[in-house]
Design a protein around this nucleic acid. Structure first.
Lengths: 229, 229
DNA sequence: CCAAAAGTGTTCACGGTACACCCATGC
DNA sequence: GCATGGGTGTACCGTGAACACTTTTGG
């Protein structure tokens, strides 16, 4: 079967920069390519957009197929279409970035048949195509966005300690934050629900757990509230 | 001549939301379609991306062809690809937004053969395709971006008064600003060069003209400076 | 009892905001 | 001389930043 057009058309793909955070810092999910070009190189998960499929759906489908990751925060990043970005011909890719709770997804991705693995964002292997550039754009977007939208919570377990939250921000923003000021500010927003639970299995005083109150956030936004760290 | 592929491919287009500002407020440049679908309706300037052409170049080319507008601020906005957004079939469009100095472009666009015209952003006619949605996304982006990047200057003549600048921000941000505070803040950034010129032809005290010091801005950015209104 | 992280308040400097009058110019 | 916008300073308040010690828990 084949499809014919009066003018040549670029191929359309999606690529996803999937971020996770753990004690070691910011991580990015990559898959190892098994076909040319760039066979054996690591690359962003992605693939072709089906002709009757929404672009964002294609991104979710590829993530699910290649890495088993689903139900995550996903947002369009930028469209990359340099004429020479793929040696096979003109390929335009709509890049997305995604945030996942690493603890929930670590094993599944790492053991997947397609050889997916998490890499420290500061020590990525050489990437296929222009994927290194896409990653840079995604990191800049994450850094910028985390400050004025509460997307950081997408990277933490649903129940978290204030120290975990602070470390998350320190990792993404790449600078240290003052503990007292951080707590004062985040608690003053009244977006966190104090739970009657504490950490377990730590060799020191167990910290209280909190969860992010998404409903309340949405209500406040409607009233003109602006999240900001 | 024809082009054949193993799998179906969407068509790839660009569309541009071109903003201008005058005394009457925020304006958007539209062209009247002369072919189906939506013949006779107003639409965003745009068209197909050539197979060997960078996407942004396509946007500039279409703007130049359809409206005579060139050498302007142009930035990618978002990629729209809803399956049903074009009745002729799958068409994915990479939307851009552009800022122009209206005084320089008003006549050329309005008298162009393809029937281009400026419309008040708050009173657009019904638009073709999903262009109303694209415009909404573009307005939100402009509102957000104008506050922390000095792109407002792209909308003013190179020499402008502080009142013009203030009115520009009031129009884009859709709220009034305090005159003294605005002047204090913008002058404190030391990004404006005070010229030895004043307005002419006004029936009141002539205001001093300023220009934006782009070099200095870039130098400050490198040192970690953040523009903010 | 020791190590490790949790948890907690105050002070100070700066920037944002509110606010009203005189000045220069053209008609 | 009058209408029109240009141009200017100060006082108050709230937020951001700096900063150190006690508490709790497990080992």
């Amino acid at each position: 079967m084949s499809f014919t057009y009066e003018y040549p058309r670029p191929a359309l793909t999606v690529d996803c920069v999937v971020f996770g955070v753990d004690e070691g810092g910011l991580k990015i999910l990559l898959i190892e390519r098994d076909i040319e070009p760039f066979a054996g190189r690591w690359a962003l998960p992605g693939g072709h957009v089906h002709i009757d499929e929404e672009i964002e759906d294609a991104a979710r489908r590829e993530l699910e197929e290649e890495t088993g990751v689903d139900k995550l925060f996903l947002e369009q990043l930028y469209t990359f279409g340099a004429v020479d970005r793929d040696p096979r011909g003109r390929v335009v890719t709509v890049a997305y970035y995604a945030l996942v709770r690493l603890a929930d997804h670590r094993v599944r991705a790492a053991t997947d048949a397609r050889d997916a693995a998490w890499f420290a964002a500061d020590a990525l292997p050489p990437l296929a195509f222009d994927h290194a550039k896409i990653v840079e754009v995604a990191r800049a977007r994450l850094r910028g966005k985390v400050r004025y939208e509460p997307i950081g919570f997408e990277l933490l377990p649903r129940k978290f300690t204030l120290s975990q939250l602070q470390r998350l921000y320190e990792i993404v923003l790449e600078r240290p934050l003052d503990k007292r000021n951080f707590r004062k500010k985040i608690l003053a927003m009244e977006l966190l629900v104090e739970l009657d639970e504490h950490e377990t299995g730590v060799a020191h005083r167990a910290a209280r757990l909190y969860r992010f109150d998404e409903r309340r956030y949405r209500r406040l936004v409607r009233q003109g509230f602006n999240f900001e760290i």
